[in-house]
Computed example of a mutant assay.
Amino acid sequence: MKIIRKVAVKQVVTDQTKMNLKEEYELKIFKLEQECQQLIFEQKKLEQRSSKNKADIALKFQKEMSNRKDHIKWYKYKLEQLEILPIGSEISDGEVDAMIEIEEGMDWNEIIDQKSILIKDGIITKIT
């Protein structure tokens, strides 16, 4: 019988990893800031065209902008943490599904032990 289980993916921090993550976080911050500017534009446009309550429109847009600003703060925090992260440390990079063949008589504890895949500069270096 085959079962599917989650396997953690970890990344070894290198100079290249730091550079890639920094670029990724900065790009996400930039896109979120652009979305905030677009929301301001859309809000003004809607307020001018609509006869609806402007306070309701403003509230809706403020909620959306607040959500994006929270994401911006999160990515700025991640950038700060990235700067102090030592080279050679491991960071979590999500999970993937793995298909495992099981048979009668196998040790269940060994099957459910936390498995992981270790990646360094885009190359799988270890599977445990």
Rank of each mutant, 00 (worst) to 15 (best):
I4Y: 09
P86F: 00
I111N: 05
Y25P: 02
E24S: 09
V9S: 00
L85D: 00
M65N: 04
E23D: 13
G94T: 05
G122F: 04
I40R: 08
K28W: 03
I87E: 05
K52E: 15
K63D: 12
K44V: 03
I117G: 05
M65I: 15
E90T: 08
V7R: 02
I102Q: 14
K78E: 11
D93M: 09
A55N: 14
H71P: 02
E24T: 06
L85I: 04
V12Y: 00
A55E: 15
F61P: 00
Q48F: 10
E64Y: 05
L46Y: 03
I123S: 06
S89P: 00
I72F: 00
Q34S: 07
I4D: 14
E83N: 11
S89F: 00
I40G: 01
G88A: 01
Q34F: 04
I3Q: 01
C36Q: 07
K78G: 05
G105S: 02
K115Y: 10
Q11P: 00
L21K: 11
L118P: 00
K44Q: 12
E103H: 10
N20K: 13
K60E: 15
I100F: 10
E80T: 06
I102D: 11
E23M: 11
K78D: 06
E42H: 09
Q38K: 13
I111Q: 05
S116D: 08
I123K: 14
V12R: 00
K52N: 13
R49K: 14
I84R: 07
D70L: 11
Q43Y: 05
T128N: 14
